[in-house]
Amino acid sequence: MLRLSPQLLDRIRAHAERDYPHECCGILLGRSEPVAEAAPGADDTRRLVLDVAPMRNAHTASPQNRFEFDPREHLQVQRRGRERGLEVIGFYHSHPDHPARPSIFDLENASWPGLSYLIVAVAQARAAAANSFELAGDRSHFIQEELEAGVSQEGAAA
C-alpha cells in the first residue's frame, strides 16, 4: 500500500495540471517498510511518501502520451534523497485525457516489483482520479494497491 498526505497528493495533481496536455512525471521519496507475515504474493510492503520530486519529461518527441526520466537527474534525486534519509519508493506520471490505469506501454517499461507506480488522470486540464500500482513478481501485470491519502503526516507526527 502507498500512503501520502493530501498536501503531497495535491502537489502531484498540480504538477499534472501544469504540464497538461503533456504527461508529467516525478519521483516518490520516503520510506518502505516490510509488513511481516504477509501471504506470498500479497502486498507485503507499506510505502510512506514523505516528499515528491517533479522530474522533467525527457520524452521530447511525444510528451502528450509518453514520458521518460533523464537518468542523470534520476541519479541526482536518488542521491540527494539518500543524504536526507529518503529513499526512492516509487514514481508518478499523468495520463492526460485517459484513465488512471497502467497501459501496455507502462508495463513494458516497468522496472522492478517493490515500487509504487502512481498514475493521475487529467481530464480537460483538471486532475481527476489517482490510482497506485505495483508490478507483479513475475512482471506479467500490475496490481492495484491501496492508496491512502487522507492522513496528514504533519498532523500524525504531532
Binding site: E23, C25, H59, S62, N65, R66, F67, E68, F69, P71, H74, L75, Q78, R79, F91, H93, H95, P96, H98, P102, S103, F105, D106, N109, A110, S111, W112, Y117
Partner: peptide
C-alpha cells in the same frame, strides 16, 4: 556503483 532503473511509460 549506483543502480538506477530507467523510468518511462505513457498512456
Amino acid at each position: 556503483l549506483s543502480i538506477v532503473p530507467a523510468v518511462a511509460g505513457g498512456r
